[in-house]
Design a protein around this nucleic acid. Structure first.
Lengths: 229, 229
DNA sequence: AATATAGTGTGTAATTTTTACACTAAGTAA
DNA sequence: TTACTTAGTGTAAAAATTACACACTATATT
């Protein structure tokens, strides 16, 4: 995306807004650019779509190259194509979002050389972003806010086994408001997509909470139906 | 890591799914192609994005060129980019939908030469479509189904003054199910975006219904809030 | 062993929203 | 005047949502 653009043709890229949750904060993955334009600025990870790739494949490849992650729930959400959004020429970009859980085993792999480094930054304190990436991010956040109300995407942010309190925490962060504990549990359990495990949380210095797992089979049935928060 | 190079031959287009309502049926605007590939097939109206146009501008221009219509509520909803979707090369297309009312004064203007003709066809009886246009249409219908449940886009399909029965009819066509008259009225009136007029319907051979107008000011306040059907 | 601490886990009543359901009123046409 | 067609209206039951508080349990501390 930062290469010299042939001006005969428009260039088509994909940018990813990766929302990550480390158990406490909601973060997004940004890279620090190593090339002009916007050298040294923070930007969303993105790249040019390959000639023989489908869009989803391309998005997956880009995500994989930048993070080492595979098999992530990822969705196209908007195309940004202002003629002036890129100083070197016409670049139409398609935005994808992904929700992933952070920490533990999964570390970010080294990324391609066009970035100095990549980092997870809390959404409560973002730097100025290159290009129109602030706009792309804003729209992505708006999108997942709307989405989490209707589909159980919150699970993507949590480890395989999680407590109800953690799940509630994710909802509160994304929706930006407190939820009532009893009502939240009543509702989320009533959807029938949670499987209660025999295990308890470990390593906490207070009463350990029961762990739950997301039941994909039941989820598949629910999908398409509307749920709401 | 290898950087994918920008690919000179990719073309970026916009296709429009125009839903039209003539008071009875839901229709979409199709063109009959006059050129290979898919000569003589029906297809969605679409065109190449111009070098200096924003995406929304481009969509508006294309819609205008094909129909003579301006100022239509139009929204981008998905990008289709399968490498094989176009037999002659890589064409990534961005789909837009629009909702417009048909009949009366507004006629379709002559359209550009790549089409033999344009026609409004009822969605209950569509021909085979060129390229992946069936897929684009399907996704568009799905999109407005979801959308009409949450935002008052149905008004776009109706004349400025309309009866509650007509409004209900639109909802029933899009959602594909019957709604209860009393409950529908109760709900739609409770949103407070309808203005009851002193006028009555004319030209019907039975009791004339009260006409309503959509109140844009109140709608602006409601927008963003969730409504549901 | 006793106590402090911190989060877990649970029920109910009041309110609001949704659903199901059927007849009279009004205007037109014959 | 009568027949026809659609407009317009209310209520009760069921379901969903909201508001709200305390006892339990595991650990850490003394």
């Amino acid at each position: 995306m930062e290469q010299i653009l042939p001006h005969l043709d428009s260039v088509f890229s994909i940018d990813c807004v990766l929302f990550g949750f480390d158990g406490k904060e909601l973060k997004i993955l940004l890279i620090e650019r190593n090339e002009e334009p916007f050298k040294d600025w923070w930007a969303l990870p993105g790249n040019i779509v390959g000639a023989d790739e489908s869009l989803d494949q391309s998005a997956s490849r880009i995500l994989y190259e930048l993070t080492g992650l595979r098999g992530i729930y990822m969705e196209q959400y908007y195309a940004f194509g202002d003629p002036n959004r890129h100083p070197q020429g016409r670049v139409i970009t398609l935005a994808y979002y992904a929700l992933i859980r952070l920490g533990g085993d999964k570390e970010l792999r080294p990324i391609s050389t066009y970035a100095k480094r990549a980092n997870w930054l809390p959404i409560t304190d973002l730097p100025k972003l290159a290009f129109d990436h602030q706009k792309i991010y804003d729209k992505g956040l708006e999108k997942i806010k709307r989405r989490i109300k209707h589909q159980p995407i919150a699970f993507e942010l949590l480890p395989e086994k999680f407590t109800l309190t953690q799940l509630q925490h994710v909802y509160e962060l994304i929706l930006g408001k407190k939820l009532d504990k009893r009502n939240f549990r009543k509702k989320i359990v009533s959807f029938g997509v949670l499987k209660e495990l025999d295990e308890k949380q470990k390593g906490v210095s207070y009463r350990a909470a029961t762990l739950y797992r997301f039941d994909k089979r039941k989820y598949a049935k629910l999908f398409g139906k509307e749920i709401s928060f």
